[in-house]
Nucleic acid binder design. Structure first.
Lengths: 122, 122
DNA sequence: TATGGTACAGACAAATTTGTAAGTAATGAG
DNA sequence: CTCATTACTTACAAATTTGTCTGTACCATA
């Protein structure tokens, strides 16, 4: 949640693009270093913070927090806090996020295919 | 084509993630501020550099060049130089990129739907 | 009273991406 | 010889994202 300069060309461009293109809008939601990894892990149900952290190799708590916050804002994950000590918080996909699953599965297949093509060029 | 530090955690993380997840791999290909816009414009056939530049609001020649170069490297667009003066260069989608079209059309639909949901939250 | 587990928050720095503002080569037209 | 056109390139600066490290509240348990 580092604030962005509200007057930068960079931000204006991004806004303009996202406004005018549903596709770019969609990809922006799931862009960012860790978002897809997080969403994937949640594909089979709820997980708590520490479970996510432990399953995603290399992520720091800070990054996990930041990306979860954004995903929450975007309405892709739902956050539930249990009033316990020590605290317990879990995350799950929202219904609109679940609609993405079949799409990203195709995209993943495409990725696999493309990767092979690139390995043995011709 | 700004070089990246080969020893940074940032790059190591990216490599690791992309290696281990076809989905992230795929999304990385089309990530970046302008790539999808460019690909969309090429959906209906070849365009030359200046045509792309004029159709993509806000892009600079530098950015267009950079992103086209990456797309070319990734095998998503094909670049053809005509030996003329003044120079003429055109760009078109490769066949693997064309396979993405139906997927991104679904993603675009999802984006539109999601956008509406967000506008009138409940 | 000291310790421990959980889910973070904050300050700061490094890395990366994006934008700005020039300039270039080649050559045909005038 | 001068200028215009096209598709770039380069140096530099600003913005943004990602990573490092330290610290916090809560209370149950030893």
């Amino acid at each position: 949640m580092s604030k962005r300069k509200e007057t930068s060309t960079n931000l204006l461009n991004e806004n303009y693009i996202v406004e005018s293109c549903d596709l770019t809008y969609a990809v922006c939601m799931i862009g960012g270093r860790w978002k897809l990894l997080i969403l994937c892990k949640l594909e089979n149900g709820k997980l708590r913070f520490s479970e996510l952290r432990d399953r995603i190799n290399g992520i720091t708590e800070r990054m996990l927090t930041l990306q979860l916050r954004e995903l929450e804002k975007e309405g892709l994950v739902k956050r539930t806090v249990h009033a316990e000590v020590p605290p317990r918080v879990d995350y799950e996909l929202t219904s609109i996020a679940k609609e993405l699953v079949p799409i990203w599965s195709q995209l993943s297949d495409w990725g696999g295919k493309h990767r092979k093509l690139m390995n043995k060029p011709r």
